[in-house]
């Protein structure tokens, strides 16, 4: 599914290297987690994969089903099946959530040569999916993320994921700013989307999200590299001992 090889990235404006050779391979249906201290490059990795401006790839590659992602526009990556759930979902005044969802769904369908969804069909699907995420009609009508609580914003991300049906989902600190109940709801939404053909990369500081979204593989990232890979136990080790021991072990 997703294969990252020797990825080196620096900030465009300052000469600061953030990723220093990341290697990562995620198979179909797998759930991987990346944990790591602040500033280790986790969010940069997610932004670079999604195609945000401001980063320069100096070496390496990232492919999705053997297609090179790094040469595509962000919208092409989305149409290819990549989805990034933002750590800070963006507020867009004046654009209705429903309009936004429908525009996105149909743009992707069009890019893939599929027929666009009619207003009626779209409405039916969106209502059904919104209901399981406890997103009410009012939230669908309001401008995208404007005035949404932290939990509502994250649920809205998961709703977009459910509507767009990507094959590779990256969750960037989806647990940040959520209370326990909100986190459970979001995790349930994610779990409902797990399938043999869909993979996940869950980026988080804390083990607690991984209690709800059980990973197959856990990676520890530090200073722009993946320094350790293991099973779910690795997350527990971090929870109990912090990152310090792991980092010491490497250096």
């Amino acid at each position: 599914m997703l294969e990252i090889k020797n990825l080196h990235v620096k900030l465009e404006e300052e000469d600061k290297v953030i990723l220093k050779g990341v290697d990562l391979k995620i198979g179909p249906g797998e759930v991987h987690a990346i944990m790591g201290p602040n500033g280790s490059g986790k969010s940069t990795l997610s932004y670079v994969l999604a195609g945000r401006d401001g980063y320069e790839v100096t070496d390496g590659s990232a492919t999705l089903d053997d297609e090179e992602l790094l040469e595509m526009e962000p919208e092409e990556r989305a149409a290819a099946g990549l989805f990034l759930a933002f750590q800070y979902p963006v507020e867009i005044p004046g654009v209705g959530n429903m309009t936004f969802l429908r525009t996105a769904v149909n743009a992707q369908r069009k890019a893939r040569g599929e027929e666009e969804l009619s207003a009626g069909d779209f409405l039916k699907v969106v209502r059904e999916k919104a209901k399981t995420l406890k997103i009410d009609a009012d939230m669908l009508k309001r401008p995208v993320n404007v005035g949404f609580s932290g939990g509502e914003k994250k649920r809205n991300e998961i709703l977009q994921m459910a509507m767009l049906e990507p094959k590779m989902c990256i969750l960037d600190e989806t647990d940040s700013g959520l209370d326990v109940d909100a986190m459970k709801l979001v995790a349930e939404g994610v779990n409902a989307l797990r399938s043999a053909g869909r993979s996940f990369l869950v980026i988080t500081h804390y083990q607690r999200l991984l209690d709800h979204i059980k990973p197959d593989v856990v990676h520890i990232m530090s200073n722009g590299r993946i320094i350790k890979t293991g099973g779910p136990d690795l997350a527990l080790e971090v929870e109990n001992n912090g990152y310090a021991d792991l980092l010491d072990g490497v250096q």
Binding site: A50, G51, R52, D53, E73, P74, E75, R77, A78, A79, F83, L84, F86, P89, V90, I92, G94, V95, T99, F100, T103, A104, V105, A107, Q108, A111, Q160, L164
Partner: peptide
């Protein structure tokens, strides 16, 4: 970028904004 990351082409996204 948020709109583009959801698959909306840049020109459409600009027009929407």
């Amino acid at each position: 970028f948020y709109l583009q990351s959801r698959g909306v082409p840049k020109r459409t996204a600009q027009a929407l904004l």
